[in-house]
Simulated assay, not measured.
Amino acid sequence: MSETTSSTPASASSRRRRGFLPRVTGTVGPLGIGIATLWLSIIVLLPLAALAVASVEDGLGGFVDAVTAPNALAALRVTVLVSAAVAVLNVVMGTLVAWVLVRDEFPGKKFVNILIDLPFALPTIVASIVLLSLYGPDSPLGIHLNATQGGLIVALAFVTLPFVVRSVQPVLLEIDREVEEAAASMGASNATIFRRIVLPTLMPSIVSGAGLAFARAIGEYGSIVLIGGNIPGETQVASQYIQQQIEIDRQQAAAAVSVTLLAIAFVTLFVLRVVSTRGQRRQELDR
């Protein structure tokens, strides 16, 4: 039995040298790289390039005029401010939800865990209808958020909450509880343990979740289309302004504002990448 076991690797190695067995390298080769590049070009790069070209059809001056128009600036301002507020709100509530799902046991926990992903599957226009029925003019709760920035925040918080929860939850699962127990045995309070031990570990994932939530919120349309009210300068966000420009046949203006949103999202994601990389290097050094 032992002879058979010991001879198997040697025979396999011999057959591999003779060319009978393929060598596993984990790479896809030039063909795989070419297919992946072609697919990304068709799905991502070509549409973005077409959008960029459309945004400068009237020259750079036309691009600047379209982006700096009063209503465009107002829509961008509302979009960025509301999205930032939603990101901060979800940092707090999303981290709390992730903590409860990981550290606490309660009836219906599995159902709640599944419920977190509902915004990913639910059509956002359905969310807008539900929110309008709950917080609109005929609200059964007596809370009227229709055509207010509060309504925008509630709608965007609904669709972006999973980004923070799902970013923080896996890190919480991997945290070594023995370190917390050791700190507690030495007299550290729960607040001190969270601030000095847990929070530094969670911070890269919290920042990542907040950035993803912000990037998602600045381009959101479906969930706010009904409850937002689309009031220029107050509740009109950039996605609604873009639709408005398309409806009045101002394609170049719509493309210019779209490129601006893409630039904001790209900068956000780039900063996330830098923060995530530094966080990983710091954790490796601590180990």
Score class of each variant (00 low, 15 high):
T4S: 11
T5D: 11
T8W: 14
P9Q: 06
P9W: 08
S11Y: 13
A12W: 10
S13G: 15
R15E: 13
R15I: 05
R16D: 05
R16N: 03
R18V: 08
G29M: 01
L38A: 15
L40P: 04
S41A: 14
I43Y: 06
L48Y: 02
A49Q: 05
E57K: 14
E57Y: 11
L60S: 10
G61R: 12
V67E: 00
T68K: 00
A69C: 01
A69E: 00
A69N: 00
N71M: 12
R77Q: 07
V78F: 09
V82M: 11
V82G: 11
V82E: 09
V88Q: 05
N90A: 08
V92K: 05
T95R: 04
W99Y: 08
L101C: 03
R103V: 01
D104S: 12
F106N: 13
P107H: 02
P107T: 08
G108P: 07
F111K: 03
V112P: 04
V112F: 06
V112I: 14
I114F: 15
L115N: 05
P119L: 10
P119F: 08
L122H: 02
L122P: 06
T124H: 12
I125C: 01
I129C: 00
L131W: 08
L132R: 02
S133K: 03
P137M: 09
S139T: 08
P140D: 03
L141A: 04
I143P: 07
H144N: 13
L145G: 02
L145P: 04
T148I: 12
I153S: 11
A157K: 06
F163T: 05
V165S: 10
R166L: 08
P170G: 08
L173W: 00
I175W: 04
I175Y: 04
E181M: 11
A182C: 10
A184T: 10
S185V: 03
G187E: 00
T192V: 13
I197M: 04
V198N: 07
P200C: 06
L202N: 03
S208H: 00
G211F: 01
F214R: 06
I218G: 13
G228Q: 02
G229K: 09
I231A: 10
I231G: 10
G233N: 02
Q236R: 14
S239P: 11
Q244L: 03
E247L: 12
A253S: 02
A263V: 15
V267Q: 01
T268H: 05
L269K: 01
L269R: 01
F270T: 12
L272M: 15
R273M: 12
T277W: 06
G279V: 03
Q280D: 11
R282L: 13
